[in-house]
């Protein structure tokens, strides 16, 4: 199992576009936005916070969405289309291990991406580290797993690698929108913000544990439920060839 993970990790590193978007992009975006003086000045519109503070949780959503809804479904669907999964099933190792390895690689890449983001935020803009580290870690993991489960569901249902990419992009856009990536959440109408709180990867809980206290257990419960349901349906309906 370890060898599958290290091999998949190497393959991830050899795909420059993925490394850039999933690992480096949130940090780059923070540095670019933070270069604009208005966005690093406390503003009553942002509840007397700076824009960059309020935007941190959305940058985490970027990482999670790229990994779970872009990299995962396209890689898995391509592996199926090219017969990589089928070849696995002729060996003593079940191809499901390859999918597990994908998720493990995503978790590692996600951790690196977010540590990088935190370090840049702290050093350059003096943004606090998460106030509730444990709650943040838990939300991050549940957010990652829930999006991965949805990503695998897309890969399970899409007939080809190309259509998996297309379907995943639609979900990706929605997640980015509700996650406040395109429009900051304080500009969204209240009901959209509330929907965003409950949708994976749980931007509300990320924000709460970063800037406030412990995340709302109901939000976390919803993420766990999405993970369990989407994961089970994906596992039941997955085609290996």
């Amino acid at each position: 199992m370890l060898k599958i993970v290290t091999t998949e990790w190497k393959l991830f590193l050899r795909d420059p576009s993925m490394v850039v978007f999933a690992v480096l992009f949130p940090t780059i975006l923070l540095l670019v936005l933070g270069a604009i003086p208005a966005l690093r000045t406390p503003d009553p519109n942002f509840g007397n916070q700076r824009f960059v503070d309020a935007y941190m949780s959305s940058l985490v959503v970027v990482t999670l969405a790229f990994l779970g809804l872009n990299k995962l479904p396209t890689t898995v669907a391509t592996y199926r289309e090219k017969g990589v999964l089928r070849r696995f099933s002729t060996t003593p190792v079940h191809p499901a291990r390859l999918l597990v390895a994908q998720v493990v690689v995503n978790v590692i890449a996600g951790v690196i991406s977010i540590v990088l983001l935190m370090v840049a935020a702290r050093l350059v803009f003096d943004i606090d580290l998460p106030h509730h580290p444990l709650g943040f870690l838990l939300t991050f993991l549940l957010g990652m797993l829930s999006l991965s489960a949805i990503g695998l569901l897309v890969a399970a249902w899409a007939p080809t690698a190309r259509s998996a990419g297309g379907w995943a992009t639609v979900v990706f856009m929605l997640v980015m929108f509700f996650g406040g990536v395109y429009l900051p959440r304080f500009l969204l109408p209240d009901f959209l913000t509330v929907i965003g709180d409950y949708l994976p990867p749980g931007v509300g809980a990320l924000q709460e544990s970063w800037l406030g206290g412990s995340p709302d257990p109901v939000h976390l419960g919803v993420l766990a439920l999405v993970t369990a349901v989407a994961g089970t349906v994906a596992a039941k309906s997955f085609r290996w060839e």
Partner: peptide, 29 residues
């Protein structure tokens, strides 16, 4: 699976895996 080796019709490997890595990986199975 341990006694039968299979070369499938139209079964590829990931684009960027190196030949040695692929063999090393499959050997570990």
């Amino acid at each position: 699976r341990t006694r039968l080796g299979v070369q499938l019709q139209q079964s590829e490997l990931p684009d960027r895996i190196r030949v040695g890595e692929a063999l090393d990986l499959y050997a570990s199975f």
